[in-house]
Design a protein around this nucleic acid. Sequence first.
RNA 1: GCUGCUGUAGCUCAGUGGUAGAGCACUUCCUUGGUAAGGAAGAGGUCAUGGGUUCAAGUCCCAUCAGCAGCUCCA
Length: 736
Amino acid sequence: MSTATAANVQVKLPDGTLVEHPSDATSLDVARAISEGLARSVIAAEISEGIVDAARPLGELATDNQPIELKLLTSRDEAALSVLRHSAAHVMARAVMRLYEGVSLAFGPVTEGGFYYDFELDEKISEEDFPKIEAEIKKIIKDKEPFERFIVDRAEARKLCDDLDQDLKVEHIDTGLADQATVSFYRQGEFIDLCRGPHIPDAGKIKAIKLMSVAGSHWKADTAGRQLQRLYGTAFFDKKELKAYLEQIEEAKRRDHRVLGKQHGLFAINPEVGQGLCLWLPKGARVRVALEDFLRKELLSRGYDPVYSPHIGRVEMYETSGHFPYYRDSQFAPLFGSEVGAMLDAWSQKLEQGTIDRDGEEKLIEAAKVFGVELPNYKLSAAPEAKQNVLHEWQLVNERYLLKPMNCPHHCQIFKAQQRSYRQLPLRLFEFGTVYRHEQTGELNGMLRVRGLTQDDAHIFCTADQVEHEFRATIELTQFVLRSVGLDDYSVQLSLRDPNSDKYVGSEQNWNQAEGALRGVLEQSGLTFNEEEGEAAFYGPKADFMVRDCIGRSWQLGTVQLDYNLPERFKLEYNGRDNQAHRPVMIHRAPFGSLERFTGMLIEHFAGAFPLWLSPEQIRVLPLSDKSLDYAVAVAKQLDEAGLKVTVDSSGGKVQAKIRNAQLDLVNYMAVVGPKEAETGMVALRDRIDGDLGSMPTAEAVARLKQEIQSRQVRQVVQTSFAAAAVDSDAIGNEY
RNA sequence: GCUGCUGUAGCUCAGUGGUAGAGCACUUCCUUGGUAAGGAAGAGGUCAUGGGUUCAAGUCCCAUCAGCAGCUCCA
């Protein structure tokens, strides 16, 4: 029985104590009743419905007669950082509006590392303007004005935004918020913004804030829509955390795989070869070979069969799979057996888009004749679809090829190439398959996003009963692979379809079955995973591994995808125990994702200093002087025969210089050899991390290195961690 | 693809409309050494490409190409 009256509310604190306050009291009052110091440090409050302003009257928060379960959030709570940052976005927007004329506000949400606010204004903001904006921000913070929340109905809100000349907000009230009866605003001094909140009690809580960058963006993410300016910033509860964050950014820059890749001769991309086409230089290729050999051996021992497929395939096959029409814009244009092919292709597309008239068609028919192509069945009066069919008939006979954009259709054809029995299932086909995708120029990024990439691809064909076991096995394989390269911090994102979108193919039943199977295995696995609607591939749900590297950045690496659709489209069948034809289920999986992206990520993760088993140069022999060069070469031969990646430094300098160069080249071990070693058949081993290890027989050095390689030991030169950096930006939704 | 910024020696970068620069790397010579830089000399440039303005363009303007950041996208 609650003792709360209409004028009082009961509050239950996390330790279980019950306190009673007047219903117009706020979380700040609750804190004040405990201690003044707590009241000063309260940022926001958490109740069962989510995070709310510490300044909200408790009476508004009570849903029924039950006590409010209230947790006071201070700077120590992770969720409080998002509240702070969103409030910082308001402060920044306020400063910008004070300094510039005609600022139209868009959205100002929290991001992983900070916050941004999108503005529409005529004047271009540049980084040179940051000091004056930051100065204005400091003034606002110094005034310690409170954030005040108020609620109005939609019509009133629309008028308020209109009066404030905030046309983007007006548009949003008319469209995005059309179903809301009332909306909330926050006022801070002269600054009023349509906002769901929550906010910090006053701007004085922002102890460290910095503008980071300015960039273009689009209103509601529509590239055809209005162009906005996006101002990025970050904020923290104290200056030390900001400093640590800025250091992390610097560290990330130092680890940039494009810089390290060039510096250490790992890979190159140049415009003469083509945008997004990666050249693996010898040292980078050695890393790749180590990864490939490792995975190939592992897959062979786990019941996979190696296969190979060509780099091009007929367009019709990709039409069957559904990829060709779906990804038309991000594929390289089809290759044609005849020059007229491209013309017919463009012709067909114009028919589809309705961008051709009778005159144009007649010209094209004439042009086709010039190429010797007669189209007697092409009737000008026919429907566009019928005309397309005529063109398509010609295209069927006169082959069109696509640079292979994915391996799945080929592997489906390999499944089909032989009669299949349930006894052969699961059939696991793997290939380091190189595929080509015409990614937009703006997407390209070193090795991380390229136009030609090699997937460590495999497709498992199995019965519905085997799905769960196979899915579990691929999850385990991925975990094993990640562990082997020293990546231990990861979670899984389960990507599901958006039931309201028409982007997805296949039956409702198949989708439910597939999604249920993935969820079930993940639940049993004990892995932490989150579900994302609308992130699935068009043919099936997927589980992606989100991996955190050693400086706290998150990467999407390995993927496992379930697919009931391609087997259907390719009419794949196996003969069951019942002697009936059955349709197999298909699992797509790639623990690395692509060799390019994975290697690029590893370069950044290890800052270019690969663990011994992946290292392109495991040991370098350093002769003390030319007098010891012959012995050095003999030692190198011994190391090479033992299977180690070894080089000799035959340059003329002093051994100190050779050591320095080897250290800078990130060679794992150095074998210093002089007259003393030559006499006794020894090497003076030096570790790049621990330094001089003393003299030992060459065989002992070999054994030591072989052991480290075999155990795939990961010894990082640089181990850094930045606790303060990342915030889960989904943890709080401050935008409508 | 869109917006903005950038493009000078192999690399990192200086360079005021008036003779193209530095450090590292490279080549040659000297030095022959014991755990993070020995010394000297030399070579290396269509200043991204194409136009334009100007007596004169690496420098100012335009276009193209490429890179970077962000947006959008990622089978």
